[in-house]
Design a protein around this nucleic acid. Structure first.
Length: 596
DNA sequence: GCCGTTTTCGGCCCGACTGTTTTCAGTCG
């Protein structure tokens, strides 16, 4: 049993919820929440820190008490405090906090007065009209709870970033045309490039008297209006997506954009910093006394706090403020740094376009190289290639490379990693390639130890360049495989191979904390489109956003290298240089002979 | 429960909106 940071974070979050409902000290609760968030974004395994006897007190927000609780959970998988709290309150009650309009005090009240412990009981109480009888609750609140619990039970979900961007762009275009609107921009998790977005946060600057709130709440896409004031309105679209719009005067644009972009944790940290230097920071500006000294741009607010501009992707309170103070912010990789793409398909397997069309599209993007990596035979559904078809494609690519100028196609394969860690094609054909991209496409459900071993064995094969979409997650569809990522990354470093950040909007795999972990481990990350058509190179923008959230600089990314620098790195992974392919082969000779 | 060039106790971000209150608590972001 191996405890991941996320497991410990989940324990702390649940403790915070239960303490909150019990009415415990708000700052004690905050300490648990802060610790959970810190662990979620931490690039190293605290379990390993415990095993190595490292000092957990050194982690931000972790004191002696939380350090001992982390050690307890890492060692036993349990937390005595949580078990005790679960005896005092039914654990399912924390689900009620997810209902908009229900906070800890009201959940407690409903529990004490009506015995409500679950979402089902909440729905029943609302339907029977019992909730409006409780002091402090009225008919409107009761109806709101009923609506919310019903949509909750039907699983309202976060939308993928790519979808949110489209919706936001459409609404912003509409708002920009309303009289009195000066600027209309996206904020919130969308601007921070989170992989999924729970609701849209939009910001406009307006002249006094602009009808923007009225126009917004009456837009044809709006299904219902949750609230509407002078500076703020919330609506739910027909699609179910919630959109919050804020309006401020132009002089406050920067302070408001900063505040509404968040994250909440980043904002709180900035406000504390403001206090430290005798300022007050709110969404209208930075104030010394009653005098506004900054606020028209974000940079002006950061400057007032003595900080350089911090790019939105980094605003998670994961060390960016400390880095900014030390003038040590990373210069993040951007789209124009990419010199090529190492994962793409053609219609030879499950892609839509021809080899030549893909090559020309890559050249139009300004790429120097494109790796063609079809599926292998096991993935019959995708018309995966066997050794014979792959050999033919290798010849086709050689012929095309001889003919085309300004783009080089690299010969690759997205070979299936079988359940036992063998690869789905024989070494005799793999050895003819420029790179071997390995990926899991079945048996996502193996237990952690076996899944991890599967990957480690695959990486030990004589030809293995890049682990594609390492966790196999599909946002909102399939959870990440249970793998020991720190171990996989260590292996990649020892082996000299690479990991992928797959830029498909439904994958974005590795995620941002994992990217940062790879960076800290010194493993280069390939940001790949996994293109199945000439249009799919557009996915790369989402990969770049995710990479930025993972603090990746151009130097941390494999495919920012020009071809001349990339080739020797790939050659080494294919066992064709002085670099040892594997210091300690984990696959025995008889297993290797069994590889198809 | 954490934290400290205002330190080991007394702080801990700040404002808008809603509903049910008759002056404000609770919730949200």
């Amino acid at each position: 049993m191996s405890i991941a940071n996320a497991d410990i974070a989940a324990v702390f979050d649940e403790i915070a919820d239960l303490l909150d409902i019990q009415g415990a000290n708000a700052f004690r609760i905050r300490a648990y929440r802060n610790a959970a968030r810190m662990l979620g974004g931490l690039g190293r395994s605290v379990r390993e820190m415990v095993e190595h006897g490292e000092d957990l007190d050194a982690l931000p927000g972790i004191g002696p008490d939380l350090a001992s609780k982390i050690a307890e959970i890492a060692a036993t998988g349990h937390c005595a405090l949580l078990e005790r709290l679960r005896k005092e309150l039914p654990p399912e009650i924390t689900a009620l906090l997810k209902i908009p309009g229900l906070g800890p005090r009201r959940v407690r009240l409903l529990h004490d007065e009506l015995g409500v412990e679950t979402l089902e009981q909440l729905r029943a109480a609302a339907q029977d009209g019992r909730i409006s009888g409780v002091h402090g609750f009225g008919l409107k609140t009761q109806q709101r709870i009923l609506d919310a619990v019903q949509s909750r039970l039907q699983q309202e979900r976060r939308v993928k970033l790519s979808v949110a961007v489209q919706v936001a762009d459409a609404i912003l275009a509409e708002l920009a045309g309303v009289p009195g609107v000066k600027q209309a921009v996206a904020a919130g998790s969308l601007r921070r490039q989170r992989d999924t977005v729970g609701d849209l946060d939009l910001l406009v600057t307006i002249e006094r008297g602009s009808p923007v709130m009225e126009r917004f709440t009456r837009s044809s896409q709006v299904e219902r209006v949750l609230s509407r004031g002078i500076t703020r309105a919330s609506v739910v679209l027909r699609s179910g997506l919630q959109v919050d719009l804020r309006a401020v005067p132009p002089a406050s644009f920067g302070a408001a954009w900063l505040y509404f972009t968040g994250s909440k944790a980043h904002t709180i940290a900035l406000r504390k910093l403001a206090q430290d230097v005798g300022l007050k920071l709110n969404e209208y500006g930075a104030y010394r006394g009653s005098r506004r000294i900054a606020g028209d741009t974000e940079a002006s607010v950061y400057a007032a706090l003595g900080l350089p501009f911090i790019t939105p992707e980094l605003r998670e309170d994961r060390g960016e403020i400390e880095a900014a103070r030390a003038r040590a912010l990373p210069v993040l990789v951007n789209l124009s740094d990419l010199r090529g793409d190492l994962h793409a398909h053609t219609r030879e397997s499950d892609g839509r376009d021809s080899l030549e069309a893909m090559a020309l599209a890559a050249r139009r993007r300004g790429f120097e190289y494109l790796a063609i990596t079809e599926h292998s035979a096991r993935l019959a559904m995708a018309r995966g290639l066997d050794a014979e078809r792959l050999a033919r494609q290798i010849d086709d690519i050689d012929e095309l490379n001889a003919r085309l100028e300004g783009i080089t196609l690299l010969k690759g394969i997205e070979v299936d990693i079988l359940e036992d860690g063998r690869l789905d094609l024989p070494d005799t054909v793999l050895t003819r390639l420029d790179l071997v991209v390995g990926a899991i496409h079945h048996r996502f459900d193996l237990p952690r130890e076996r899944q991890t071993e599967r990957l480690l064995r695959a990486m030990d094969r004589p030809h293995f360049s890049l682990l594609a979409h390492p966790t196999g997650r599909l946002l909102d569809e399939r959870p990440a495989c249970d793998i020991d990522l720190p171990r996989v990354l260590r292996k990649a470093r020892e082996r000299g191979c690479f990991v992928e950040l797959n830029a498909q909007p439904e994958r974005l795999d590795l995620d941002d904390p994992a990217c940062r972990m790879a960076r800290d481990e010194g493993v280069l990350v390939a940001i790949d489109s996994d293109a199945h058509s000439v249009d799919d190179f557009a996915h790369l923008r989402f990969g770049i956003g995710q990479a930025g959230r993972g603090w990746l600089r151009a130097a941390d990314v494999l495919n920012t290298r020009p071809l001349a620098e990339l080739r020797p790195l790939l050659e080494a992974t294919m066992g064709r240089s002085s670099r040892p392919a594997s210091p300690q082969p984990a696959v025995r000779a008889d297993q290797m002979a069994g590889a198809r």
